[in-house]
C-alpha cells in the first residue's frame, strides 16, 4: 500500500522535529455545518490529523461527553453517507490534512466493507479506526480497507500483553493508538510513567507511529505525553467546549484550547 496522507504527515513532522496532534470530533454535533467549520478551524489552529467520529446509537467505549455528542448528531439522523459527504466538502479546500473516521462496526458492516471503503476513499478519507473491531475478527476488514487504500488504525490497551501489542501494531497502518487508561473516553487522567513505558515498548516493537489518547484534556498533559509519544489525541475536552457554548462561541473556545495544546506540545 503506498504512503497515505497519514504516513506523509508523520514523516513531515518527524523531519521537522514536531509531534503530531490529532483531534477527535463527532460528525454532526450539533450539526454538519458546525463540524465542517470546526474541522477547518482546528487545522488552522495546528491540528495535524482529524479523527471524525461517525455517530452510533450504542457507543460502548465512550464516556458521557462523546455519548451525548453522538446523541445530538443522531437526533437529526447523521449517517455514514452524511459523514462522507462532509469529508468531500472538507477536501474541496484542504487536500492535505489526513482524516480518519472513528466509530463502531455496525454502520460499516451494514453498508458492506467494500462499498464503504470505495466511497470513503472517493470522499477523501485516509483511515478508519473501528473501536469494536478486534484484531481477531479483522482479517477480511483489513484486506478490504487496506486494499482500497485506507489505513487501519487499531487500539492497544493497558491490558494488552507484549505479544498482542506487537501483533496489533503490525496490523495497524498509519498509526497505532495507545489507550492511556482502563476506561472510557473522557475519563480519568492516566499514570504517565506507566504510559511512557508501554509506548516505549510499542515503539521498539514496530515502526508504526504511536498515538496516545483517552483522558488527555489540557495543554500540560498533552505536552507531557508528546515528550515520548509520536502523537497526542484529544477528544472529549474539545467536544465539551461545543456542548457548553453553542454556535460560534463554542467553536472559538474549542479552537483556542487546541491552539494552546499545539503551543504546549511545540515548546
Amino acid at each position: 500500500m503506498p504512503a497515505t496522507r497519514i504516513g506523509a504527515r508523520f514523516t513531515k513532522n518527524q523531519a521537522a522535529g514536531k509531534k503530531t496532534l490529532i483531534t477527535f470530533i463527532t460528525c454532526g454535533d450539533p450539526d454538519l455545518e458546525t463540524s465542517l467549520m470546526l474541522m477547518r478551524k482546528l487545522v488552522d489552529a495546528g491540528v495535524d490529523i482529524i479523527e471524525l467520529g461517525v455517530p452510533f446509537s450504542d457507543p460502548m467505549a465512550d464516556g458521557p461527553v462523546i455519548q451525548k455528542a453522538s446523541e445530538r448528531a443522531l437526533a437529526h439522523h447523521v449517517s455514514v453517507g452524511d459523514v462522507l459527504a462532509l469529508v468531500r466538502q472538507f477536501r474541496q479546500q484542504d487536500s492535505d490534512t489526513p482524516v480518519v473516521l472513528m466509530g463502531y462496526l455496525n454502520p460499516i458492516e451494514h453498508k458492506g466493507y467494500e462499498g464503504f471503503a470505495d466511497e470513503a476513499v472517493a470522499a477523501g478519507v485516509d483511515g478508519v479506526l473501528t473501536v469494536d473491531m478486534s484484531l481477531e475478527e479483522s482479517a477480511n476488514y483489513r484486506e478490504v480497507m487496506n486494499g482500497a487504500g485506507l489505513d487501519t488504525v487499531f487500539l492497544v490497551a493497558p491490558t494488552s500483553g507484549a505479544d498482542r501489542s506487537q501483533k496489533i501494531a503490525t496490523a495497524s497502518s498509519g498509526f497505532v493508538y495507545y489507550v492511556a487508561v482502563k476506561g472510557v473516553t473522557g475519563g480519568a487522567r492516566a499514570d504517565f510513567v506507566e504510559v511512557a513505558e508501554k509506548v516505549g515498548t510499542l515503539q521498539k516493537q514496530s515502526t508504526t507511529p504511536v498515538a496516545v489518547g483517552f483522558g488527555i484534556s489540557n495543554p500540560q498533559d498533552a505536552a507531557q505525553i508528546a515528550e515520548f509519544a509520536d502523537a497526542v489525541v484529544v477528544g472529549s475536552a474539545i467536544i465539551k467546549q461545543i456542548e457548553e457554548q453553542p454556535g460560534a462561541a463554542g467553536i472559538e473556545a474549542a479552537t483556542e484550547l487546541v491552539r494552546q495544546i499545539r503551543q504546549a506540545m511545540d515548546e
Binding site: L135, E136, E137, F154, L155, V156, A157, T159, V179, G183
Partner: peptide, 12 residues
C-alpha cells in the same frame, strides 16, 4: 458470535 469489543476488554 465472535468477540467484537474494544481492546481493553480482550484480555479480561
Amino acid at each position: 458470535g465472535g468477540r467484537f469489543v474494544s481492546e481493553t476488554l480482550m484480555l479480561p
